[in-house]
Design a protein around this nucleic acid. Structure first.
Lengths: 155, 155
DNA sequence: TCAGTTCATATGCAATTGCATCAAATTTGA
DNA sequence: TCAAATTTGATGCAATTGCATATGAACTGA
């Protein structure tokens, strides 16, 4: 086993701490403005990005990194509030499509006013020109299974 | 209100996603190895860093970014497991000191074997030389209230 | 074609978190 | 010096999450 270097440990610690701090600040702002949690926004945004405003729960799950059972219940709550609707998936009775309602679209737009401002305040304003780009690039290296490994370009 | 630039939004999104992905991977490893969650480790580590192995809950709270009531209950669980002990704070009967036990120290050490390896695997191995340093520097800009503002260096 | 497997979603129950509030001890300030 | 305010920590209760498993639908392969 390989011991991580000091700078790696520090990067990890800061990743977690910065993420939590910024997320807490942003969530706070939303809550004070009377909005639901960020996870609701994430769902609404993913749906809004689809031309027909529909996605399967499975797809949503991977996009917003939610556990299946948690998403199922989040959708329950959002459906109760009239923000989304469950509609049958043509040709497969196991599956379903989650569809955003007009109320859902409206909420997403209202939330963005508050959310976007918070992102600018707690992220944008703290970084100099080019640093956001740089940060994004570095973070993307931590994501996904980028271990090509056994078959990188094999024919 | 200021709209965040695209690169800022992307950096924010990746901050959250990368944090979650890496944290999930690491927590998974710990769980599979039969260890408690990371929050337990955080507490043990903070205590171990003190020469006498003691800190007040208030101090812990800010160091590990835990809500007071959540920390109170986390300490309940850890105390039940014999990893920490609550001892009276001399001169103030409201306060207390959390003290790490020998079992707590032992657990911290065992956890580090697994935890350190995971950090190296999911963070260190994904970054080239110097990138961890760079990432840490960028992330630190997002933290703390760096708005000196009203009294920066006033006499 | 049908028994076994896999897939998509839901749900009961326990653990954890969030919120509001409490109780006790200390500090403040008139 | 004492009432009011503040600080520290705990706790009842509701909401959320995690885990295990259920339910029903669709594939798979002899």
């Amino acid at each position: 086993m390989q011991e991580p270097s000091e700078s790696v440990v520090k990067a990890w610690a800061r990743l977690i701490r910065a993420g939590r701090e910024v997320a807490a600040s942003i969530e706070n702002g939303l809550k004070e403005a009377g909005f639901p949690p960020l996870s609701w926004y994430d769902v609404l945004l993913e749906l809004r990005r689809e031309k027909d405003g529909r996605v399967t729960p499975r797809e949503l799950e991977t996009r917003i990194l939610f556990e299946q059972y948690n998403l199922s219940r989040l959708l329950d709550r959002m459906e109760t509030e009239g923000l989304v609707r469950r509609v049958p998936y043509p040709g497969d009775k196991r599956r379903q499509l989650i569809e955003i309602t007009p109320e859902g679209r409206a909420l997403q737009q209202r939330m963005w006013k508050s959310y976007g401002a918070a992102i600018e305040r707690f992220v944008g304003a703290k970084l100099a020109d080019g640093e956001a780009e740089q940060l994004g690039t570095l973070l993307s290296k931590l994501m996904e299974t980028q271990d090509v490994g056994n078959c990188g370009g094999c024919s």
